[in-house]
Amino acid sequence: MSRKWVISAATAAAALFIGLGAVQAADAKKLVVGFSQIGSESGWRAAETKTAKTEAEKRGIDLKISDAQQKQENQIKAVRSFVAQGVDAIFIAPVVATGWDSVLKEAKEAKIPVMLLDRQIETKDQSLYMTAVTSDTVHEGRVAGEWLAKQTGGKCAVVELQGTVGSSPAINRKKGFDEVVAKNPGMKIIRTQSGDFTRAKGKEVMESFIKAENGGKGICAVYAHNDDMAVGAIQAIKEAGLKPGKDILVVSIDGVPDIFKAMSEGEANATVELTPNMAGPAFDALVAYKKDGKMPPKWIQTESKLFTPDTAKAEYERRKDAY
């Protein structure tokens, strides 16, 4: 029953969409971009989709979003349908790294440029896509480390909450941070464990760290590979009778609204933003290419900006609706 309702609603919406498209086609050349999004498995992903919509509106671009529900075959179907519709460009946030060659060839034969958002793909033929807009996760770890080194004068006993073992952001965010630690002899990672990128595990691991390090007295700072684990760690620090942000510094990566809330309450010290605005730079590159054929670089790196408590309140207000 409800499924039928959804389908008929979707059909109606699609009809409306096509109708609008026909009207808009009349006013000169409005760029049409098809965006194959992975799904909405996290708050960040939802924010990326939302930001893509507003960035498209800003530039007067007609954006068609297809939700793949975490399945590559749905993404491939979406790309084929975009090719059939003859869009001006296709954006893909690829759910997995491999298996894209044949469908990207179809897009290439139709002379439709493809841009990758937020993740890279593995392919032998680099000409299959025009550019990839992603963040540098090693750099994110480096930015977090450098802030901590500066804040503590290069002397700090750090406990690290790693992401899921073997995942690429966990490996890279550790690598970047380790580079900074290696440069500062007074800095040391005294304990490191996986908190699986979740609040619950972040809290559990931090509880053990505090007990293992003399009730937390031996810990100068906690570095978490994402904000959610940091939020869990903050609770563990509080429950041990210590003050997060003062007795133990808290630095993490992602920039989700809840960490800004914690920062505005003085319980976290810094976060490195993984911007959800991946579509904006891609739109800019596309517009420049369509206008005077300027090829964008193969990799557009998004900024890894560090945020501290002084702007936290305003940033929280700005973000809480985007996520």
Binding site: D196, A200, K203
Partner: peptide, 11 residues
């Protein structure tokens, strides 16, 4: 209740 939040993906 422990993490003061519902994480539907991971709980």
């Amino acid at each position: 209740a422990d993490i003061r939040g519902a994480d539907a993906n991971n709980a």
